[in-house]
Design a protein around this nucleic acid. Structure first.
Lengths: 238, 238
DNA sequence: TTATTAATTTTGTATTATAATATGCTTTAA
DNA sequence: TTAAAGCATATTATAATACAAAATTAATAA
């Protein structure tokens, strides 16, 4: 009945299962969810576990429950998309190419500004971290055994951190997910990886040189490249 | 013991109480939380209610619990700051002028890009909504009985909606909170409200005329004004 | 000393019972 | 006839208890 996932206790498994189903549209705002009693029966578990799952989903904005009325599905606009679980459920159910475009629009807002803030406020050790990621990218660009993707993620995460703004750094999971989806739609051509690494290196240098505008523009360019690639892909498939 | 808040059931009240305490630093990563049994005693409630509160806080990334180890506080970087409750707990405990600067840095990333997307993708009815908010601002600028703040919020929310990107619209609660904090630090001088309303009107027009770059620049300027005001205020107080 | 086993503590799950709440129906009175 | 009051009912909310599972610590035996 429930997909068993390692390291997740019963109520967490049910949360996952129901969350996925809700985001996939198996339960709508109109229909609502079955009653607690019915869910107990369906999953063959106690009310304790069901209720804890319901509470967790409610905490993520997916549902709400009231006596006599039962459990109702919240409007999708109330779902907390910046919750890692909700985001993964969304990707499981949506055509990822379309979501990817939304991701890139968001990255185009966040990351250039983060780079500018980093150029202004980063501490030296933050910039060292960024540079370390750049070095890893350079290595991965030529060494097939090293992971370009991991280095890329480290770069973008460390820039968010260097912005010294909690709200930017908080989006690291969002960016990570966006990068994961990106590589699913990228041909694994390592041809221009060296050039990509150098584009990242330029951003790092701009931050180190305390050039906010330059860092911002370079980051914008970087993400724009990915965007134009995706738009071409969308056009090709339609 | 617990601050009783209307319309909140017992486990939600405890969630609020513990959430506030955790964000305020009353429990640290090192110390962790009391055991479920102790919390039952402290609050004088059943384990059921305590556990449901714990689950909700865990769903928001504030804590995690394991058998024998008890309930531990997650690192603040793992807290889901885009959750409305967590955000309000944060504001209750932080010097709001400092958080306000972080808010504005974030708005400076999000809203200009949202305006640009709106100029590109908004439907006609979306733009009508924005215009309605602008009209309300114009009225509030001269009529003391009308709320400038409400109209302002409506404007920024409708631009986010018009971006036609879920991740942008999802941030409306974040923006609302940012605006709320802003007015706490703004002198209630209605002197230049007419000019402010016209600045908003220009953005609306740029969106209607499908001028993404212009809409973006105008929005940047709008938020930059607030930013420079806040930076002056921070300097003044230090 | 080291590996194994046992005891202990805490959360995880199940069960049962009762309270609170909201909805719709029925009765009653104007 | 109609509106108000009260009642029945379904569902979540809270409590209490019991036992299982997991992880740490202590004790034991080789």
């Amino acid at each position: 009945m429930v997909r068993i996932i390692e390291n997740l206790n019963l109520s967490e498994q049910v949360t996952n299962d129901l969350g996925r189903a809700i985001v996939a549209g198996e339960y709508s705002c109109e229909s609502g969810l079955p009653t607690e009693a019915q869910l107990c029966e369906e999953y063959g578990i106690s009310r304790t576990a069901v209720r804890e799952a319901v509470k967790m989903l409610a905490a993520k904005g997916l549902i709400s429950s009231r006596p006599r009325q039962g459990i109702s599905v919240e409007q999708p606009s109330n779902w907390n998309l910046y919750d890692t679980s909700v985001l993964s459920w969304l990707l499981d159910s949506s055509p990822s190419l379309h979501v990817l475009k939304e991701f890139l629009q968001m990255r185009l807002a966040i990351e250039p500004q983060a780079a500018a803030l980093a150029a202004e406020f980063a501490r030296d050790e933050d910039i060292d971290q960024i540079e370390k990621a750049v070095e890893a990218m350079r290595i991965a660009a030529t060494d097939p055994s090293a992971s370009m993707h991991d280095a890329d993620l480290a770069f973008h995460t460390s820039v968010l951190f260097a912005s010294r703004n909690r709200f930017f750094f908080q989006l690291r999971d969002f960016i990570r997910t966006a990068l994961n989806v990106s590589i699913q739609h990228t041909t694994p051509a390592k041809a221009n990886d060296v050039a990509v690494a150098e584009d990242h290196a330029k951003i790092c240098l701009a931050i180190r040189n305390r050039q906010p505008e330059r860092a911002k523009n370079l980051m914008t360019h970087l993400i724009d490249e990915a965007m134009s690639f995706i738009e071409a892909e969308i056009k090709r498939r339609s």
